[in-house]
Write a protein that binds this DNA or RNA. Structure first.
Length: 282
DNA sequence: GGGCTCATCGAAGGTTAACA
DNA sequence: TGTTAACCTTCGATGAGCCC
């Protein structure tokens, strides 16, 4: 299978009036946002297919295998960017790791990622503006494009983030969503995600908080924090060269032995074995 | 729905040692 | 030096029962 690389922080490409997709199933080492400017067809990510039409947007994460089957003449807009771009302070958010995590943990399934109607109507003019700047090459066009690209990425992350946790249903309270969001924002600071601290933050008693969280999400706070932290650690192991000690520090573990114990309990294997086996060439 | 108390359990911390 | 494992201790989270 063909694998593509990105040799710059981000790149933009507009491909118009395609009748046949020039690429078969392939993977990248970067993120790719695909926006359908016009046309219809089928999109395939990791052997799951769904139909696309004008206004649909897809996020292809690194390692996802994807392809398109074109039915009616289609015009695509591609925005490609790497982990390095996210981490390079180009995006001015106070939580780049979270942004990176949200994008990395998009559901890896086909289908439009824009769930929010307001954002759908926001994205279209944003992309039009990017294309306009990209084509006209007026002064400061590079700076303008970068700002527009950053806005696009944050809007996409917001849409993924809002609908990401599988334990959140339609019945879930606004407050429960806020608690989930609070936990995600503070996953690197164990002292901030203790029941005592969260209960004070949200104005509920400690004893009620646990019961409330379970009722809203069908899992205990401990379970949620553990699984969220596990995903983050897996991501670090797979997509970074961080040493165990660095991961330990980042996630607030006492030492490597506790990270090892935590990981083994959840995954059944040690973090080192997981990293080696997952990076083994197939 | 929301709060309190209390017993229980398990996760996390601390330490040490072995091994590559 | 980095990683893993084992053991013991501490303490926080949870669930049950009750009340408003």
């Amino acid at each position: 299978m063909k694998r593509e690389n990105l040799h710059e922080p981000f790149s933009i490409e507009v491909i118009e009036t395609l009748d046949v997709c020039p690429k078969s199933g392939h993977t990248h080492n970067f993120f790719e946002l695909v926006y359908i400017l016009s046309g219809t067809g089928t999109q395939c990510i990791n052997n799951n297919t769904s139909r696309y039409h004008e206004g649909h947007m897809f996020l292809i994460t690194p390692e996802d295998c994807h392809s398109f089957q074109i039915e009616t003449t289609t015009s695509f807009f591609f925005l490609r960017f790497s982990n390095i771009y996210l981490q390079s302070n180009s995006i001015h958010t106070d939580n780049v790791q979270r942004l990176e995590f949200i994008l990395q943990n998009a559901n890896h399934q086909p289908g439009c990622i824009l769930k929010n109607q307001v954002d759908k109507s926001l994205v279209h003019p944003l992309i039009e503006a990017v294309i306009r700047e990209y084509v006209n090459r007026d002064c400061y066009n590079r700076e303008l494009i970068q700002h527009l690209v950053n806005t696009l990425i944050v809007v996409v992350a917001r849409n993924i983030s809002k609908y990401m946790p599988q334990q959140v249903g339609e019945q879930t309270d606004e407050k429960a969503l806020d608690i989930l969001s609070y936990i995600q924002n503070n996953i690197y600071y164990p002292e901030k995600i203790r029941t005592e601290v969260i209960s004070k933050e949200f104005g509920v008693s400690e004893s009620y908080l646990g019961r409330y969280f379970k009722r809203q999400t069908n899992e205990t706070m401990q379970q949620y924090v553990s699984s969220y932290r596990m995903k983050m650690i897996e991501h670090r192991l797979l997509h970074s060269d961080m040493r165990m000690g660095e991961i330990v520090t980042e996630f607030g573990f006492t030492d490597e032995s506790h990270l090892n114990k935590f990981f083994r309990k959840n995954k059944g294997i040690s973090p080192t074995v997981f990293r080696k086996s997952s990076r083994m060439p197939v």
